[in-house]
């Protein structure tokens, strides 16, 4: 799976805010025009971002293989016809072009993921969204990342406990109900303890924000991000 790897590539050194903008901008641009030249252009740009993160395109494609394999079925499904000629090329090509637009989005998000630690995205969210919503989402993201492994372990423990007591013999309905309800109870118990701990540590609306530094090299990246975001307005 794709995840953050420490490094010192150009992509690593950029501010997460400019990287986020480029990522969203490219997603907007990529789906704007389902035409071949546009697809070639956005894909070339995406390959550029992989280079900036020193990622091998083949390795990235390999880690997306399940997603890509499923997406590749879409043109086949689109082309199948229930009578002669049994397969129609036009809708298949149309679908292939649509699915193809997704490829650059996947590549750019790979470049982002591998070059940006989660805490940087959290810091960017906290700084980009003003006031209370930014604080809730920023701190919230940090907490979800922190608690996800614990809750996942809880859910697996509940599942194993159900199995250990012969739960497989019970109907699916009962098993799922037990698992869902018991997991929810344990999760909410954690919530009660966390909320007391946050209050004891003066959880505030106006904390010192996590450090981020917007460098000179971020300005051109920011400009590219804005250009990509408005590119659907350009007639092709």
């Amino acid at each position: 799976m794709l995840s953050y790897r420490p490094g010192s590539t150009l992509a690593h050194r950029l501010d997460p805010r400019s990287k986020l903008l480029v990522q969203f901008g490219l997603a907007i641009a990529a789906v704007a025009h389902p035409t071949l030249p546009w697809l070639v252009g956005t894909t070339a740009f995406a390959l550029g971002t992989l280079a900036a993160a020193r990622l091998s395109p083949l390795a990235v494609l390999r880690s997306y293989r399940v997603v890509l394999a499923v997406l590749a079925l879409a043109p086949v499904v689109a082309g199948v016809a229930l009578g002669p000629p049994w397969f129609r090329v036009d809708p298949a090509l149309r679908s292939a072009l649509h699915v193809g637009r997704i490829l650059p989005v996947l590549l750019v998000s790979a470049a982002y993921l591998t070059s940006t630690p989660v805490r940087d995205t959290r810091a960017a969210v906290q700084r980009l969204i003003p006031g209370k919503p930014g604080q809730i989402l920023g701190i919230g993201m940090a907490l979800v990342v922190r608690l996800f492994p614990l809750v996942l372990a809880d859910v697996r423990e509940v599942r194993d406990a159900i199995h250990a007591r012969g739960g497989e013999a019970r109907p699916l309905r009962d098993r799922v109900r037990l698992l869902a309800v018991r997991s929810l109870e344990r999760t909410l118990d954690r919530s009660d303890r966390l909320s007391v701990a946050l209050r004891a540590r003066c959880f505030a609306w106006n904390p010192t924000l996590p450090p981020l530094s917007f460098d000179r090299r971020d300005y051109p990246v920011l400009a590219v991000g804005i250009a990509l975001s408005v590119s659907p307005l350009v007639p092709v």
Partner: peptide
């Protein structure tokens, strides 16, 4: 948001904006 930020929280431990848009 934590999925977009890179935590492996989507089905089969997937992550990323690309997955949110396409999956």
């Amino acid at each position: 948001l934590v999925g977009i930020a890179g935590a492996p929280v989507f089905s089969n431990a997937n992550a990323g904006l690309g997955y949110v848009i396409a999956g």
